[in-house]
Design a protein around this nucleic acid. Structure first.
Length: 818
RNA sequence: GCCGGAGUGGCGGAAUGGCAGACGCGACGGACUCAAAAUCCGUUGCCCUUCGGGGUGUGAGGGUUCAAGUCCCUCCUCCGGUACCA
């Protein structure tokens, strides 16, 4: 009997499967289609760690099983290849980013093959290739043509350390998503996609998706729809007449408690309403707050809010009262109207501000009809309106509608829905991205260049400068062109698109990666999309996943697709923590690579361990001892199967044969359900349990010869998706039919085999286990009760007492209540 | 603060309201060996035990139920996200 040698098996079967085209996408019209997709990886120079395996191995297992189940499977892989690290490397070394990318993608591919992730490499795509990005540019123009792409020179989030502008999503929390550094505001002309037009649909259509709740919650949070009202306060100014000051509020019911107004320091009317007496102070305040980053502002004002009176007074349209107008940086410029009515009695922030500056507090909502007193703290709860003129006595909830209607009737306000989400800033002043296909013409303005692709030219220097100019701006021969509309001399747009544009449609490209007439072949899209199963980490909840949903809806509106959601079912793998209890990272030097582990334990053991270590979604700490455990399992399978390969002829032991069939059926059922349900850990545990059973009973193999052989066959088949090498080798050694186990039909279990003659159940007295009895499988409740009460042990415990009640759960237990 | 998720042996973790701790790791004991590794067999929640067994136990406290890790209420801790969004 030969010893288990994973290196030999890997050397033998990997090329065999490649020769066989095992991973080629199926196209049998009789079969149903299954599209499984991994997140589009950015090929980093660091290569893959075992952490990445928690993404790629489970999807590979699912796909192998789906194939054996009789599906056509599409499981492609490609590269989100535009992006900063390659560019940074290029800046440092002068090597072309395309070359950097080529080296990195080859390494990724090599590593994926190490653990035998079965991708259809004939469909490999690369977002930095002109054949791909011409279609990214095409979608830019689709958005442009539909009025969903526009230029604006507002304040942007800018990361000084990455020297790059960021979208709102990429700078959540005031820090750069890539380097975690603090972002600053910078005024630069940029291109935006109007994702806010789709806010309602992005929010409402989340409900039916089979996605993790936390991801859906994050998106809902991010979109942040709020229903409220806009109310116009008016200000008589010294020199500029009467200025209307609309404020946004979700609590119009508290408007009789508004005792002052606050404008953001960036409010466009601020300098028009300020009185001469306060002008210097206000200008100084604006300067101070604009010198702070958002993060600094937040941290500072959490301790203590600051602000300054403008000298102006605004009229509350509901009661005609004049209230002072202040400016303070706790009011944000980017949300609502950048102006608020402050109700210190019923808003904590306004309360803190009013207390600091001695502004008055008027209580107008009484929860449960009882005024709570608002000197020390604001009352946020709803209740009955007091001190509110004609609205006094209404409930605060009802009055929101009533008072908004009143404002409409009197022409000073309206109901209004606002969103937290902002438009998607998509342009980057960087070299390594898809050029935005726009030409700027003095006469015609921004004109689409439909002669795609607009090819990224070669440059000498990849370095962006601090002025926010793209390296492309220096390429005069490229920049200077003629206007596609009027032919006059014109200049190309020199920004490129953020990488998230490329990944917003890549899932469509995979169905027809070489199609040259359009971004995708509509027939193939009909066959495969939407994606049945999408797997990746949770970090893209409000970036990639929201952008891709947005583009899909735009394509739907343009009549290109007949579905509105790209990813039917989404799963997030848990993080893998290194042995030092920290995230794996190159800088910490704690990265464990699949390369090392495959050399030491083989691909099968690594694959088994990755899915066995714990629940798929859970964060788990790496343990090489654990991997050694699955290695032992593979070896035990190897040894046992070879040892019992050809049992001698012997008399059949009916009882054992039956038991063996039962254990087989139980295992096949469990593994089938667990793989389908993404419960790989318990599925592997079931195989281990079964192996333990077989191992204990190996001596009886010959007394159940036929069944034993069926056990071997089915066991190898259900093991194959997780441990493809050892199962393939044993499949052939044991002489099972077919070219490869991986195209064999998935084993079925017989429910007949799961029926037992007798079952052991426990007998409890008042919930405590006192005895175990064996009863016929079909026994009635009454029969079971009789058997239980007839037991000596039970009689002893009852000591002649007549049970008050006996609960019988067939197949489980008897509970006697004394 | 708000939203989402989770608290079970020494560790990773299992348990349609029905025998808590499957499976694996680690540890301990034994076999094999000159020895070690590998392998195999056994033990392994905690406490008590006359070795038959008995008690106790799933973050804390209540509740529902014949029966609760699982359902309900209150609270605590941890992880992830988000945070002057008016």
């Amino acid at each position: 009997m030969s010893t288990y040698n994973f290196k030999e098996l890997e050397k033998k079967w990997s090329p065999f499967w490649e020769e066989l085209n095992l991973y080629k996408t199926g196209d049998d019209p009789e079969k149903s289609n299954f599209y499984c997709l991994d997140y589009f990886p950015y090929p980093s120079g660091a290569g893959l760690s075992v952490g990445h395996c928690r993404n790629y191995i489970p999807t590979d297992v699912i796909c192998r099983k789906k194939k054996m189940d009789g599906h056509n499977v599409l499981h492609p892989m490609g590269w989100d290849a535009f992006g900063q690290p390659a560019e940074e490397y290029a800046i440092k070394t002068g090597m072309h980013p395309a070359e950097v990318t080529r080296i990195n993608t080859e390494n990724y591919k090599r590593q994926m093959k190490l653990f035998e992730a079965g991708y259809d490499w004939s469909r490999e795509i690369n977002s930095s290739h002109p054949d791909y990005y011409r279609w990214t540019q095409y979608f830019f123009l689709l958005l442009f043509d539909r009025g969903l792409a526009y230029q604006s020179d507002n304040y942007q989030m800018y990361c000084p350390s990455c020297k790059i502008v960021l979208s709102n999503e990429e700078s959540a929390g005031g820090v750069c998503w890539r380097c975690n550094g603090e972002v600053v505001k910078k005024k630069l002309p940029q291109w935006y996609f109007k994702i806010t037009d789709y806010a309602d649909r992005l929010l409402d259509e989340l409900d039916d998706l089979d996605w993790p709740e936390n991801i859906k919650a994050m998106q809902r949070n991010w979109i942040g729809r709020s229903h409220g009202a806009e109310v116009v306060f008016s200000v008589d100014t010294e020199k500029n007449g009467t200025i209307d000051l609309p404020v946004y509020t979700t609590r119009i019911d508290t408007i009789f408690g508004a005792t002052f107004c606050v404008l953001a320091p960036e409010h466009p009317e601020l300098l028009n309403i300020v009185t001469d007496q306060y002008r210097d102070d206000v200008e100084r305040y604006i300067k101070t707050s604009s010198s702070k980053t958002d993060l600094q502002r937040l941290v500072a004002s959490e301790k203590e809010k600051t602000g300054i009176f403008t000298g102006a007074w605004a009229v509350n349209p509901f009661n005609g009262e004049k209230i002072p107008v202040w400016t303070a940086d706790y009011v944000l410029s980017g949300y609502g109207t950048a102006a608020i009515m402050a109700v210190p009695a019923h808003d904590e922030r306004d309360h803190a501000f009013a207390k600091k500056y001695g502004l008055s507090v008027v209580e107008v909502v009484a929860p449960g009809g009882v005024a709570q007193g608002v000197e020390d703290a604001a009352t946020v709860a709803d209740g009955e309106l007091i001190n509110s003129g004609q609205f006094t006595g209404l409930s605060s909830v009802d009055s929101r509608k009533v008072m908004a209607d009143y404002a409409v009737q009197n022409g000073f306000g309206k109901a209004e829905t606002r969103y937290r989400i902002r438009d998607w800033l998509v342009s980057r002043q960087r070299y390594w991205g898809a050029p935005i296909p726009i030409v700027h013409c003095d006469k015609c303005g921004a004109v689409p260049d439909r002669n795609l692709p607009v090819v990224l030219p070669d440059v000498e220097s990849y370095e962006p400068d601090d002025s926010g100019r793209s390296p492309l701006a220096a390429q005069e021969a490229w920049v200077n062109t003629s206007c596609p509309r009027c032919g006059a001399p014109a200049k190309r747009e020199t920004s490129t698109m953020a990488g998230f544009a490329c990944s917003s449609w890549y899932f469509l490209r995979f169905v027809s990666p070489h199609f040259s007439e359009a971004p995708f072949d509509p027939e193939e899209v009909k066959k495969w999309l939407p994606v049945d199963l999408y797997v990746g980490g949770a970090e893209h909840a409000v970036m990639h996943l929201i952008y891709a949903r947005f583009w899909t809806k735009v394509m739907y509106d343009a009549g290109m697709l007949d579905f509105t959601e790209p990813f039917t079912s989404l799963k997030n793998q848990g993080m893998l923590i290194s042995y030092d209890h920290q995230k794996m990272s190159k800088s910490k030097g704690n990265v464990i690579t699949p390369d090392d582990m495959v050399v030491k334990y083989g691909a099968d053991a690594l694959r088994l361990y990755i899915v066995f270590m714990g629940p798929f979604e859970a964060e788990i700490e790496w343990s090489e001892e654990g991997l050694a455990g699955t290695y032992r399992f593979v070896k035990r399978v190897w040894n046992l199967f070879l040892e019992t390969a050809e049992p001698e002829d012997a008399e059949i032991d009916e009882a054992f044969d039956r038991e063996l069939r039962y254990e087989l059926a139980r295992t096949v059922k469990k593994v089938t359900e667990d793989i389908d349900g993404f419960q790989f850990n318990t599925g592997v545990a079931a195989m281990m349990e079964f192996l333990n059973f077989l191992s204990v009973n190996r001596g009886k193999a010959s007394s159940a010869k036929g069944t034993w052989r069926k056990v071997q066959k089915d066991f190898l088949a259900v093991l194959a998706p997780v441990a493809p090498f050892v199962s393939e080798e044993l499949w052939h050694v044991l002489g099972f039919p077919g070219e490869t186990v991986h195209t064999e039909p998935w084993p079925q279990w017989s429910s007949q085999d799961l029926v037992k003659n007798s079952v052991e159940i426990v007998v409890q007295i008042k919930g405590k286990i006192r005895d175990r009895i064996s009863v016929p499988a079909g026994a009635s409740k009454q029969q079971i009760e009789e058997i239980a009460l007839g037991r000596d042990k039970i009689k002893e415990y009852l000591n002649g007492a007549v049970p008050r009640r006996v609960i019988v759960v067939p197949g489980r237990l008897v509970n006697i209540i004394g």
